[in-house]
Amino acid sequence: MDKTRRYDRQLRLWKAHGQARLEAAHICLLNGTATGSETLKNLVLPGIGAFTIVDHRLVAETDTGCNFFVTKSDIGQPRGKAIVEHLKGLNEEVSGRWVNQNPETILDKDSSFSVSDYSLIIATQCSSEMLIRLAANCQEVGVPLVVCETAGFIGYLRIQIQEHTIIESYSGPNEDLRLDRPFPTLTEFVQKFDLNDPDSMAHGQIPYIVILLQYYQAWQRNNPEAPSMTLKEKKVIREAITRAMRHPDEENFEEAAKNVLWALNTTQIPPPVREILENPRCDQLTENSPDFWVLARAMRDFVQQEGDGMLPLSGHVSDMKTDTANFVAIQSL
Rank of each mutant, 00 (worst) to 15 (best):
I75E: 09
G76P: 07
Q77T: 12
P78C: 03
G80T: 00
K81C: 13
K81W: 14
K81H: 15
A82F: 07
I83T: 03
V84I: 04
V84Q: 08
E85I: 11
E85K: 12
H86Q: 14
L87V: 07
K88N: 09
G89Q: 00
G89V: 01
L90K: 07
L90V: 07
L90I: 06
L90F: 13
N91C: 03
E92N: 13
E92Q: 15
E93D: 15
E93V: 15
V94W: 10
S95Y: 15
S95I: 10
R97I: 10
W98H: 09
W98I: 03
V99T: 08
V99I: 11
V99E: 02
N102F: 11
N102C: 11
P103D: 00
P103W: 09
E104H: 06
I106E: 03
L107W: 06
D108Q: 11
D108F: 15
D110L: 13
D110K: 15
D110T: 12
S111G: 01
S112W: 15
F113C: 00
S114Y: 15
V115S: 04
V115Y: 08
V115R: 05
S116V: 08
S116N: 11
S116Q: 14
Y118R: 01
S119F: 11
S119H: 08
L120V: 04
L120Q: 03
L120K: 07
I122A: 00
I122E: 03
I122V: 03
I122C: 04
I122Q: 05
A123I: 07
Q125M: 13
Q125S: 12
C126Y: 13
C126A: 10
S127F: 09
S127V: 08
S128F: 14
S128H: 14
E129D: 12
